[in-house]
């Protein structure tokens, strides 16, 4: 169960209180009736679904009830940023800069799985800790 920071409640709450609302930043045209078929297709049917950073909407439906936006890494499931509806989108480059090191899955290729040296110092002998 994820822990999601709600920008309105100003604290992290359990995923059970939230509902995902699909991709964010897909604005409905103010003159939607006049949209071309192509523009409407892009608006209503086409979603990006990238591996990596996803911009998505969440609703704190069993909390404050507000919709807000979040940026989540679909590889690690980690939230990098949450912001209120209407606030500007933060570009991926700005978020990637302070991205923590990715965690691993045990099913990554064997060569990648096994770091040459353990990432942090360990005590392996008695009394060395």
């Amino acid at each position: 169960m994820l822990l999601i920071h709600c920008p309105y409640c100003e604290e992290a709450r359990p995923e059970l209180e939230f509902r995902n609302g699909g991709e964010a930043h897909i604005a409905r045209s103010t003159s939607i009736a006049d949209e071309s078929d192509e523009a409407f297709e892009a608006f209503f049917f086409i979603r990006t679904n990238p591996k990596g950073l996803v911009y998505e909407r969440w609703r704190h439906i069993h909390g404050c009830g507000r919709f807000f936006n979040a940026v989540r890494d679909s590889v690690t499931d980690k939230f990098l940023h949450v912001y209120k509806a209407g606030e500007a989108k933060v570009e991926p480059s700005a978020l990637m800069a302070n991205l923590p090191e990715h965690g691993a899955y045990a099913n990554v290729p064997a060569a990648e799985l096994n770091a040459k040296t353990p990432a942090r110092k360990r005590a392996t002998k008695d009394g060395e800790a």
């Binding site: 360990r122 392996t124 008695d126 009394g127 800790a129």
Partner: peptide, 11 residues
Amino acid sequence: NGAEGLAATLA
């Protein structure tokens, strides 16, 4: 974590 003795373990 690979500790091989009680002292290391406790530490």
